[in-house]
Every structure is written in C-alpha cells, then in structure tokens.
Simulated assay, not measured.
Amino acid sequence: MSQDSPITLTLDRGLQVLRAFRADCTPLTDAELSQRTGLSRAAIQRLASTLLHLGYLRRAGGGTRFELASGVFGIGQAWLDADPIARAATPLIQALADKMGAAVALAVPDQLDMLTIAYGSAACVESPRRGVGTLAPMESTAIGHAWLWGLPEYERRRYLLRLLEAAGVQAQTLRKAIESAFDDLREWGVCTSQEAFEHGIYGAVALPLRAGQWRMPMALGVTTVVSPPGIEAMRARVVPALSQVARELTVLLADIRVGPPGH
C-alpha cells in the first residue's frame, strides 16, 4: 500500500457518507448511514465527527440524526456556476416545465444513481422539487432506465450486472422492471414509471440523449402528478414536447466539451 493510500481511503469513505443522503432530505442516524454505505457504525461515527467539524454535516434539530450542511451546497453551487451544460440547458428545460405544468430534469450517472445537472419546475402545480444536485436511484426510475438504454450494449450489460448484484434478493424483480422499460423504449422511444415522492404518486416519462463533443450519454425526464386517465394519457401528452426539447438540447450542446469523469 502506498503512503497516501490511507488518506485516499478516508476521503472515499467520507464521500460515501455524504452521498448517502437523498433528495427527500430525510436526516439519518449513524445506523442508517452504516446501512446505506456498508461502513461500520464506529467508522460512521468517526467520519461524521470530522464532517461535522468541517461544516459538511450538521445535527438535525440538535438531535442524534445528521443532515447535509452548507459546506456541501457551497461546493455544489461552485460546480453549478462553472458547468456549461446547466447554463445552456436550463432555459429550455424550464420552458418545457412551464409548458407541461411539471418538473423536468436532465441527468447523468453518479455511480449507480442519476445526478440531476439541470432542472426546471412549473410554479403552478404540485410536483417533486428535487433540484440540481439531487440523486435518484438508477435501477427504479424512468430517467435511470432511459440512460441505461442509451448506452452501448457492452456498457449497458456492465451496469446491469452491477445493479442486479446490488439488488440482492430483489434482482429478478429488478431485471423484469428494467426489461419492461427497455421494451417501451424500443417501441415508443421513451419509458414511463410511477414514483412515490413526498406522499404523492407521480408519473415519469424519460428518454436518452447524447450531448457535447464527446456525445456524453444523458437522460431527460418529465415528472408530474398522475391524474385520470393515468400514465398512458400523460405519456401521449408529454412525449412530443419532450422529444422536441431533446433534439434542441442535442443541437444546443453539440459544441460543449464535456465528457465522462476523467475526460
């Protein structure tokens, strides 16, 4: 082991703790953080103490649960201010959100989650306000399934193996759900799902796209309250506008030099 390996490992574990928090903003105990990260409670307690001191975590209501603190948002805002995709895509995405009376997200992968990098939400409707920087599970969301579908086949298989391994005893159920989404994408060019968020049921429609000089895979999704006659009618209403914005984004972002991490 090299001299700097322990420092690198500690940093990686600290980032795992921060990534354990999700879009619902629910404060977490050390036991819940341990369950989400796979780290021991003793390790969580040491890491949380450091993250508290550095201003990346705080105690929710002065109790025993942890929540993200302003240090995280400062880093996120710095990234957002510098990101050319967010700056260019947000006006189009907000226009689509206003037109559909919905929430619209452009997302890329972050390990086995989907990270929202541009976002818009209509003020006139109740819809999930996840916002830029929030994570959604790749395995169970329309935007995650759409992104998977947009990958080259060999890379898609690699991600599917990782997702199925992480699913454990639910792997077979997950496989069927993803295959059903892929069937929709073959037939319609989009996939749909129903997702629970903040005590509401929402319908999501998403499609894959590629953007930038390196043709980076992304996914674009619309989420809105499901109302009668249901998600099929919502798909028929949303798909033409969603597809049009995806084409416009592909053109708009064509010259941006952006690629996967490390590029």
Rank of each mutant, 00 (worst) to 15 (best):
A42D: 15
L28T: 03
P109T: 07
F182Y: 13
M1R: 10
A142I: 00
Q170S: 05
T29Q: 10
G221F: 09
P240N: 10
Q170W: 04
R59I: 08
V245N: 06
D113N: 15
R46K: 11
G38M: 08
V169M: 08
V222D: 04
V108R: 13
H53C: 06
G76F: 11
A20S: 12
R65F: 13
R58D: 12
Q194E: 07
A86R: 04
E187R: 12
S40Y: 11
W147C: 02
F66V: 10
A60V: 08
G230N: 07
G221H: 06
V17Q: 00
S243D: 10
L252E: 01
L52A: 01
A20V: 07
E187L: 15
G101M: 05
R36H: 10
G189Y: 04
R36A: 08
L164I: 02
V104R: 02
Q45P: 12
L52Q: 02
P6E: 10
L163A: 01
A105T: 05
G71C: 00
L185E: 01
E155S: 11
T134P: 00
L52E: 00
G14S: 11
D4Q: 14
A103Q: 04
G221N: 00
E32Y: 11
A166W: 06
I7D: 15
A118E: 08
T50E: 02
R19V: 09
L160Y: 06
A233S: 12
A42Q: 12
H263L: 15
S180H: 13
W147V: 02
I7Y: 15
Y119S: 04
V245H: 00
Q94S: 13
S193V: 03
R36G: 04
R247M: 11
I75H: 03
G262K: 10
A246L: 03
L28G: 04
G144H: 06
F182H: 11
S180V: 09
A42K: 07
V205N: 05
S70F: 14
A69G: 05
G61T: 03
G150K: 07
L185Y: 01
E126T: 08
S127M: 05
V125I: 08
R157W: 13
E232F: 01
L242K: 00
A233D: 05
A123D: 12
G101T: 02
T10S: 11
L174E: 03
R237H: 14
R58N: 09
L209E: 02
K99Y: 01
S193D: 09
A146V: 02
A95E: 13
T116C: 10
R41M: 12
L253I: 07
G259C: 09
R36T: 04
A97N: 03
V169K: 14
R59H: 06
T116L: 06
W214Y: 14
Q111Y: 13
E195Q: 00
G168C: 07
V238I: 15
D113T: 10
M216P: 11
T224M: 11
A97Q: 08
Q16F: 11
L54G: 00
R87V: 03
R257I: 09
V245K: 04
V205R: 02
D30I: 13
R175N: 06
G259I: 09
